[in-house]
């Protein structure tokens, strides 16, 4: 049986893959890096893979934003500044990438930068989450407050330059600091051609000082706006294939709703651990792909994609299991058990 010229099996596979990405996206506010490489491995033209991947991310971000909004986890003013800073950063990063490409340095440098960035961010998050150093956890505010206490004074959060923006109930930050932070987090997004959530979310948590749910909700709001603009741009180049986007979105809408809904059930400390693990596995996968490209071994590229998708699947299952444990624990009137 075929629908719009696409077999039912392909549609079901896309819907299942979409549900996986949607769950990751709804929970962590990132996951766009899973789609385009997978479409490329499936044999889609790079224009269609990038354009359809972006259109899918746009649709998923709409759903995730609406759900996070229902939970009060979207800071619109922070999101607006994030969009402005990130857009400028992406543009500058993109120009840097084009300059590197003209110099014949793009492939090696970008791949290496990707691995170093993913590896560093993931390792830092994991180290903070699983550190035995109890000084990293303040007595009253938990892990994130402890991290904020350790941020040195030169970090932009301490800048007092007006206008200042009240984020949430107790975080006040200079708009100029926000623009600087989001501009810097936009640079790798433009340079590496990625969404950049894995850099922006830790930056919003550690440098701005918002909670993980608010960082995720605000990030998906920013992705929704930039994704819509990007989709329009790619659609003009014929890069958006609805027979790919529609079934992916059918699955991701379910996953994103589920992922967003369980953010309140899963312990924030544990969520950060999953986030760090997925980013580190992403770094390993990109490193494998880079080695495959260097050695002209396309099979290693497939191994890299399988590792990315496999780690996302594993993390999704861990998140669901944590949510189930937390719901049962709440029912018993106790706290969720530690891993």
């Amino acid at each position: 049986m075929a629908v719009f010229g696409v077999s039912a099996v392909t549609l079901a596979t896309f819907a299942g893959f979409g549900a996986l990405v949607g769950l990751i996206f709804g929970f962590f506010g990132m996951g766009s890096f899973l789609v385009t490489p997978t479409l490329l491995v499936l044999g889609y033209d790079s224009t269609v893979a990038v354009g359809s991947g972006l259109a899918f991310v746009f649709g998923t971000a709409v759903i995730a934003t609406l759900k996070h909004r229902d939970l009060g986890q979207v800071e619109y003013r922070l999101g607006a500044v994030t969009i402005a800073g990130t857009t400028a950063g992406i543009e500058v990063g993109k120009r840097g990438l084009l300059a590197l490409r003209d110099a014949g340095l793009a492939d090696g440098l970008v791949g290496g930068a990707y691995v170093i960035l993913l590896g560093t961010v993931g390792t830092m998050v994991l180290r903070d989450v699983y550190s035995d150093d109890t000084s990293s956890k303040s007595a009253d505010g938990g892990l994130l407050a402890g991290l904020a206490d350790r941020i040195p004074d030169w970090v932009p959060r301490r800048v007092r330059l007006p206008p200042r923006l009240l984020v949430g109930d107790d975080v006040e930050i200079s708009v100029w600091s926000l623009v600087l932070i989001t501009f810097v987090t936009g640079l790798p997004a433009g340079l590496l051609g990625i969404g950049g959530g894995f850099v922006r979310i830790p930056a919003l948590i550690y440098l701005v000082g918002v909670s993980m749910p608010v960082a995720v909700g605000t990030n998906v709001f920013a992705i929704m706006v930039s994704g819509g603009i990007g989709t329009f741009s790619w659609a003009q180049s014929g890069g958006v294939d609805l027979s790919v986007v529609a079934p992916l979105l059918l699955g991701s809408a379910f996953g994103a709703r589920l992922g967003s809904a369980i953010t309140d059930h899963v312990d924030e400390h544990r969520s950060m651990g999953y986030f760090g693990a997925m980013v580190v596995l992403g770094a390993v996968a990109v490193a494998i792909r880079q080695v495959g490209r260097r050695l002209d071994m396309p099979e290693l590229r497939v191994v890299g994609i399988a590792l990315i998708v496999g780690s996302a699947f594993l993390v999704a299952m861990l998140v669901l299991a944590s949510a189930v444990r937390a719901i049962r624990s709440d029912d018993d009137g106790g706290a969720a058990p530690a891993d």
Partner: peptide
């Protein structure tokens, strides 16, 4: 117009599914 229609369709599908 085609590009705007595609964005509209994706947005409409997302809202419908939501």
């Amino acid at each position: 117009v085609h590009a705007a229609a595609l964005v509209g369709i994706v947005l409409a599908e997302a809202l419908l599914l939501y």
